[in-house]
Design a protein around this nucleic acid. Structure first.
Length: 196
DNA sequence: GCATCGATGGTG
DNA sequence: ACCATCGATGCA
């Protein structure tokens, strides 16, 4: 099944195999890098939205002063303190929902923010930037806590980027020396990355 | 090409 | 008051 014949456009996932739990039970930096090139699938109300992930950020746990888990467990972030492989979604600036994937073991409170993707079906859908990504994928706080090993929201395999770039995370200038850590990763060749 | 600003609502 | 954002605006 070829989806769309447009210049430079993604055509087909190499092997549509669902990503299993053990993928998520590793540290945030490793998973953030390995997520690049994977396909996120969201099935919602009889529709299906898919995107190739091209930009991520790692949040390393309570000691990472940029991570939500730095405050300890609260009503909002409790999903972060659970096992890896679950969706953590929160509202930012009163407007946008941010889609994160909880990773590592129970209580490690690590997560990976998905910052940008390439839409597989409609090339005009903009999925660049975490707010637009969640919006374009129809992911909202209703999906907070959803198991990514289920059938509603999950990942399938995809080819990793040829070249990965690393940079500082966006919007975390409050985080002391953590703001300068290179924990943002993106596909160097993708036009859909939010900030190059 | 910048820098700055407002929208908007949950959180601590 | 702050915020893991975005698009519009103003100025160069």
């Amino acid at each position: 099944m070829i989806l769309r014949a447009k210049e430079g456009y993604y055509r087909h996932p190499t092997s549509p195999e669902k990503i299993l739990r053990n993928f998520y039970l590793r540290d945030a930096k490793t998973v953030a890098i390995d997520l690049l090139g994977k396909i996120l699938v969201h099935r919602n109300k009889g529709r299906e939205f898919r995107a190739k992930i091209v930009e991520t950020e790692a949040y390393l746990g309570p000691h990472d002063l940029a991570a939500h888990s730095r405050m300890g467990k609260t009503k909002r972030n409790e999903i972060m303190f659970g096992e890896g492989g679950f969706a953590y979604i929160f509202l930012i600036y009163g407007i946008y929902d941010m889609f994160n994937i909880v990773v590592s073991e129970h209580n490690d409170a690590q997560a990976v923010l998905i910052r940008a993707g390439e839409p597989l079906e409609d090339p005009d859908r903009r999925l660049s930037g975490p707010g637009k990504f969640a919006q374009g994928m129809h992911i909202t706080r209703r999906q907070n806590g959803v198991d990514l090993c289920g059938d509603q929201l999950f990942l399938i395999d995809g080819a990793p980027p040829k070249k990965i770039k690393k940079a500082k995370r966006i919007g975390v200038d409050y985080a002391g020396h953590w703001k300068d850590r290179h924990l943002r990763f993106y596909d160097a060749a993708s036009e859909f990355v939010s900030v190059s």
